[in-house]
Amino acid sequence: MSNCLHLAIPAGDLEVAKKFYCEVMGCRSGNSEEGRWIDIDFWGNELTIHQSEERLPTVRHDVDMGAVSVPHFGVHMPEDEFQALKQRIEAAGLEYLDKPYRRFVGTEFEQETFFIEDPNGNVLEMKTMVNPEVLFRDAK
């Protein structure tokens, strides 16, 4: 693995957070320190969830689809993985923070996105793009 993102977040109860990330989100766990932290393979990135009492505060920022929670993090994934993730979330009986929404319809930047909170209130935005190759190309 090279050039992967490392992000460490407060996770609340580690076992609850691990279950969410591994069973619902479909990630794998890696290295850990008992009762302190667990590395999660977050689509090729290293997400380290830390046992904690605190939660990160969030605010809402206005964008085209409404007010979204900041801070947030997530990944872009192929359509089939995205749809499978939505099915796991719904099968687990979890509620979306912001329900799946199609943005930029009819443009080269068209995407479907949703926001969900992990058990400690960390906000994740998950996306699938119709044309992922335009992600870092200058907008026209």
Results as ranks from 00 to 15, higher is better:
39 D>Q: 06
17 A>D: 06
26 G>T: 05
97 L>D: 14
55 R>P: 07
91 A>P: 08
5 L>F: 09
136 F>D: 13
17 A>V: 05
21 Y>M: 10
41 D>G: 07
55 R>W: 01
100 P>Y: 05
15 E>K: 09
26 G>Y: 07
125 E>G: 03
73 F>S: 08
30 G>M: 12
125 E>Y: 03
124 L>Y: 04
139 A>Y: 12
125 E>D: 12
32 S>V: 09
20 F>M: 02
134 V>T: 06
84 A>W: 09
22 C>W: 14
49 I>H: 00
108 E>N: 11
87 Q>M: 12
41 D>I: 12
57 P>Y: 00
38 I>K: 00
132 P>F: 11
44 G>A: 01
49 I>R: 01
29 S>R: 00
74 G>M: 07
130 V>S: 03
120 N>A: 14
20 F>A: 03
85 L>N: 10
129 M>R: 13
103 R>Y: 03
130 V>W: 09
24 V>M: 08
70 V>A: 12
112 E>W: 11
12 G>D: 00
9 I>N: 01
44 G>H: 05
91 A>R: 15
99 K>I: 05
130 V>M: 08
72 H>W: 04
20 F>C: 02
71 P>G: 01
21 Y>T: 09
80 D>R: 13
25 M>T: 04
18 K>Q: 10
83 Q>P: 01
89 I>E: 01
107 T>H: 10
52 S>A: 14
78 P>Y: 14
137 R>A: 11
126 M>K: 13
49 I>N: 00
3 N>I: 02
11 A>T: 08
9 I>C: 00
79 E>M: 13
75 V>A: 07
6 H>R: 09
50 H>D: 14
81 E>T: 13
118 D>H: 05
44 G>Y: 04
121 G>Q: 05
